[in-house]
């Protein structure tokens, strides 16, 4: 089984076609067409309720679209899911669950392990290596409720790393982390890109988009624009995505971007 990435043809990591998702007759995503080239580090930005999380969930087949299709590395999600890693929103789980950091990271191996088989020494070693990469190895035996927000986020990242995927989908990996952790995470994401992986992040901080990402999709129920940051990340598109209410001008003047960092629920 050869993917386009392996054959060296113009590779598309994620291809979204005519995707529409609705909750209770209310469209959350409307007729989205989106190509994510392999090997990019892409941000999905847009106001609250724009359907960013839903888009990721639709790609992962976690929500059923009303119409349209998604292909990952030229295959359906069902066929390609062992090449996909997922980092859910940190707040989506109960951090008081009785389990350890190492145990959570090993969950990233469950897909490769298959049914019933328990994680063995090799899985443990992989999990410890992943924790090393996020500077959390010393926390392996900690109970997860003893972690700070940034540490929780790094544990989730380590879990995605042990999935050893080609395509990573991350829902707000920078949400609620301090500046140090944010730098550590972005270094890690850039390393993934260097290793040829594709990384897609729901992102809220409009100011950091040009520094962190090379590809961007602007979303507000419909797709406003997508492409290289240098080409599509401009005031016109931002205003289309966020409406005229907010002043951005993030790169051309000293005025800071203001619509950001609001935790989203959708």
């Amino acid at each position: 089984m050869m993917t386009s990435a392996e054959t060296g043809q113009p590779p598309v990591a994620i291809a979204v076609r005519d995707l529409t998702v609705a909750y209770n007759d209310q469209p959350v995503l409307w007729d989205i067409d989106l190509d994510v080239p392999a090997g990019v580090l892409m941000a999905i930005v847009g106001p609250n309720g724009a359907g960013k999380t839903t888009l990721i969930k639709a790609v992962l087949n976690l929500v059923r679209p009303a119409a349209g299709s998604v292909e990952i590395l030229g295959q359906s999600y069902r066929q390609s899911r062992d090449k996909v890693g997922y980092v859910p929103q940190r707040g989506s789980v109960d951090w008081d669950f009785p389990t350890s950091v190492l145990d959570v990271v090993q969950m990233g191996r469950y897909g490769a392990l298959g049914w019933i088989r328990r994680p063995g020494p090799r899985d443990r070693e992989l999990a410890l290596q992943a924790l090393e990469k996020v500077s959390m190895r010393d926390f392996a035996d900690r109970q997860i409720s003893q972690l700070s927000g940034g540490q929780q986020q790094r544990v989730f990242l380590a879990r995605a790393l042990v999935q050893d995927a080609q395509v990573y989908l991350m829902d707000e990996p920078f949400q609620g982390v301090d500046a140090t952790t944010e730098r550590a995470i972005i270094t890690l994401l850039k390393d993934l890109r260097t290793a040829g992986k594709t990384v897609v992040c729901v992102h809220h901080d409009l100011q950091t988009v040009p520094d962190y990402f090379d590809w961007v999709a602007l979303l507000n129920v419909r797709k406003i624009a997508s492409g290289p940051v240098s080409e599509v990340y401009n005031d016109t598109n931002l205003r289309l995505a966020y409406g005229g209410r907010v002043a951005f001008l993030s790169r051309d003047s000293a005025a800071p971007a203001t619509a950001q960092s609001v935790p989203e629920e959708d």
Partner: peptide
């Protein structure tokens, strides 16, 4: 006992379990 690992993941992180195709 048999589905220990699966139960644990489904209860702890449903979305992640779904993404693994469980």
């Amino acid at each position: 006992f048999v589905f220990w690992k699966e139960f644990k993941l489904v209860v702890f992180d449903r979305a992640f379990a779904l993404s693994l195709g469980m």
